[in-house]
Nucleic acid binder design. Structure first.
Lengths: 333, 333
DNA sequence: TGTTAGCACTCAACAAAAGAGAGTGCTAAC
DNA sequence: GTTAGCACTCTCTTTTGTTGAGTGCTAACA
């Protein structure tokens, strides 16, 4: 239905309810406003558009947006050029990179953005080393494939001898090298402990620390940017709403669920949540567009845009694809 | 002047301009409204209070708040009990701790809060170790006093021999052990390089990496929380203002300057910036109360509360002192 | 001299009333 | 199937009063 498309297009731009007159005038359909009105009636009956009040124009419903996103989006309209060369520098620290990407997205789209730290799934241990840092502490350094480095300080009762350290290092490396993080289980731990002899306890500590260091860190860390952009959209800028939305973005609760949902699922393309589709009460006036990026070797994360329901889906989808693509390439040099 | 105190107290509570009648009624001064009016005239002339418009009550000016903060605050009124046992758990990762503290502050005060990561000033190197992680990379682990661990991956052209590594480790440790980070200068580097012989280049890389790893990381990292609390205060919740303030908090520009100012100065107590006193246009409707915390060995940071000018200074100062105290103790076990 | 009562005046805030304008649904004609 | 015309609805804006809090000033009082 060309008319639905026209209505949504117009509403995306202005944010105002659009009336029959406007459509009749500013499209090349060459239909009078009366005809449009009839059609509108039908569309309303189908639940694709609605009137905020009698004698106002129509605005799209969530279902209406859905149709638009699924069938009517014009991929050629993508205005990605501006961001094409965004040059995600290979930043020293992942954290900064993510924050930078979030900012980039927010600035580029004028919406709010989020990006989750990649989860380290199926990452393998590549190198372990214990060193006596001072008489009371041993430093365990664990390097994973993809050169992720973690370290942990382990207090010890007494200083270890040079030989003991050497022995333990050897032991740990031979037993854990190439083992995926998830596969470190009690059985394996027990086996290694046994071989450690007197240092059983210490080895237990080291493995615990390793597990600890790897898991909960980036667990569900989400970086956001451009939250204040919501003030650009009058329909969201109202006190009550703005407050709720900002709180949501700050606390990241709803975003967390979305990210988890994304990571759990197998789907890897663009996903669009319109209004209540995200199951989150606080998101009812927002749309969230997400996609998955993949740093390789199971390091996946989610990146997305949060904006008003009347967001420029074409543009956002384009930009997200771009970013995800860039991130995908980043570590595959 | 008891009257000024009464006016400010009242205004802090209500946020509404306070009239002569109110003061006359709800204080134990036993003065009629007429008298109060006369006094108010004087206070206005002195620039301590002002009227938003004729026929409205008076509100304090920045100067008025200043007087209050400097001379009239009632320390006994502190309502810190609620937070007394806040139990800042010794979190694994500093970052989480700081974020947690920020949230605690925001929740406890109902204002926005900020905390800067501690700057590592005068921290000394305690331990350095190079290890061959894989054929192309060497991992440099640097441990500082206070057990701050940094690491950096250095690409190398060819694998080093066991002996070479041992030699370099020995060299680096003997030359850099106990050296404050700031004192690593070109002269020192040259001297070490010379001793490194064939590995001159590699050593240079390591030291560069070390310097790199230590400095810019936590440099001016600021964690904030509770930004949305500003919506609680009608005088800030207006679109335009709220947006500016939230943007400021998100971007952290102004906060950064304040933190730097604090760290540069020698003062270590509570500091209150009222309105324009912070030199930041965007802060003109806000007050910022900060204090410095000290994790020991020169690891200092700034923690503060950002709120409306009519914030409950007594309470905020109390809580901040408490938090700073807790943080001070944290690492001094 | 400091305090108080009284009064006229000002001005924001609220509410009711009056238009204006946009948009609709429906009917009748093309 | 499309269009013109018209009465009707409802929001939004503007206007006009009205109210009430609060002031400044003057004159009386202790």
């Amino acid at each position: 239905m060309k008319i639905l498309q026209a209505i949504i297009r117009n509403y995306l731009e202005t944010g105002e309810p659009v009336g029959s007159r406007t459509i009749s005038k500013y499209t090349d359909l060459n239909l009078s406003s009366a005809t449009i009105r009839n059609e509108m009636s039908d569309l309303e009956e189908m639940g694709l558009i609605k009137q905020p009040h009698t004698s106002a124009g129509r605005i799209p419903t969530d279902a209406g947006y859905r149709i638009y996103v699924d069938h009517m989006m014009d991929d050629s309209r993508r205005e990605v050029e501006e961001m094409k060369n965004l040059l995600v520098d290979k930043e020293e620290r992942l954290e900064n990179l993510l924050q930078q990407v979030a900012k980039l997205l927010a600035d580029g789209t004028q919406y709010a953005s989020m990006i989750s730290a990649p989860t380290v799934q199926g990452n393998k241990i590549k190198f372990i080393q214990l060193s006596q840092v001072d008489p009371e502490n041993i430093l365990a350094v664990i390097v994973l494939e993809k050169n992720l480095v973690r370290n942990s300080l382990i207090p010890v009762k007494e200083e270890l001898t040079q030989e003991a350290l050497l022995m333990l290092n050897m032991l740990l490396n031979t037993s854990l090298n190439g083992v995926p993080v998830e596969q470190i289980n009690l059985g394996l731990i027990a086996a290694i402990k046994k071989k450690a002899g007197v240092y059983e306890e210490l080895v237990g500590d080291v493995i615990d620390a390793a597990a600890e260091a790897i898991k909960p860190d980036d667990d569900l860390k989400i970086y956001t940017s451009g939250a204040t952009n919501i003030f650009r959209y009058p329909e969201l800028a109202d006190h009550q709403k703005a407050r709720e939305i900002l709180l949501e973005i700050e606390e990241k609760g709803a975003l967390g669920s979305i990210v988890q949902e994304r990571l759990a699922g197998e789907e890897t393309g663009i996903q669009v949540y319109i209004g209540t589709e995200s199951q989150q009460e606080s998101m009812k006036d927002l749309s969230v567009v997400t996609t998955t990026y993949d740093l390789g070797d199971g390091m996946k994360g989610t990146v997305g845009i949060i904006g008003p329901k009347r967001m420029d889906y074409d543009k956002v989808v384009g930009i997200l694809k771009d970013i995800a693509h860039n991130l995908d390439d980043l570590y595959k040099t």
